[in-house]
C-alpha cells in the first residue's frame, strides 16, 4: 500500500518534452501540463503519491504541485468517473436552454453535478466556466470534446454512444 508512485516511461518522455519548452532551471513551469499528462494516465485524477513522484521528477516542492493541482479546475485531486461530462451553463448557454440539458443529464444519470455515477462510468463536472462555444450553445464537453447546439435527443444519443 505504501509504495511510491512510479511515473511510466511514456509519461516521463512526455514530461521531458514539456520541460524542454522552458528555459533551464524552470522545470516548475512544466507542472500544469505534467499534471494533465499524469491525470490522463491515472483514470482522470491525481493522488498525493503522484504529486510526490512528480515533485521529485521535476525537483520542485511537493506543496508547489499541490497548490497548482487545487487551483485549476481541470485537475481532479479526488477520484472521478471515467468519462467527464461538463455542461456549460454560463450566460450565453443558459439563455439557450443549458439548464434543461443539465437537469436532464442529472436525471438520466441519477447524479448531481460534481458527482460520479455508481458504476464510475460518468463524472458530471460542476462546470462554472464558460467553455468558449457561446455561438454553439447549449453545449457540453465530454472528455474535452465539444458537442454543440444540444437538444435532449442529441444528448441521449451522445451518452448512449459512450456507454
Amino acid at each position: 500500500m505504501n509504495e511510491d508512485y512510479i511515473i511510466s516511461d511514456n509519461s516521463k518522455q512526455l514530461i521531458d518534452d514539456v520541460v524542454k519548452k522552458f528555459p533551464n532551471n524552470q522545470s516548475r513551469s512544466a507542472i500544469i501540463e505534467s499534471l494533465l499528462i499524469l491525470q490522463h494516465e491515472n483514470n482522470g485524477f491525481i493522488t498525493k503519491k503522484i504529486m510526490k513522484a512528480l515533485a521529485i521528477y521535476l525537483t520542485v516542492h511537493e506543496i508547489d504541485i499541490y497548490e497548482v493541482a487545487t487551483f485549476y479546475t481541470m485537475i481532479n485531486v479526488h477520484p472521478v468517473g471515467k468519462n467527464t461530462i461538463a455542461v456549460c451553463n454560463n450566460v450565453s448557454c443558459m439563455l439557450r436552454g443549458s439548464d434543461e440539458i443539465l437537469s436532464h443529464i442529472e436525471k438520466k444519470l441519477n447524479i448531481k453535478v460534481g458527482q460520479s455515477t455508481k458504476d464510475n462510468c460518468f463524472y458530471l463536472k460542476d462546470e462554472i466556466e464558460c467553455l468558449a462555444a457561446c455561438n454553439g450553445g447549449p453545449m457540453m464537453q465530454v472528455n474535452h470534446k465539444n458537442y454543440e447546439n444540444l437538444t435532449i435527443d442529441k444528448v441521449d444519443k451522445i451518452l448512449e454512444s459512450i456507454k
Binding site: 516542492h61 506543496i63 508547489d64 499541490y66 497548490e67 487545487t70 487551483f71
Partner: peptide
C-alpha cells in the same frame, strides 16, 4: 522550506 501552501481558490 516550503511546507505551507495556498490551496483552492
Amino acid at each position: 522550506v516550503k511546507e505551507l501552501g495556498l490551496l483552492n481558490r
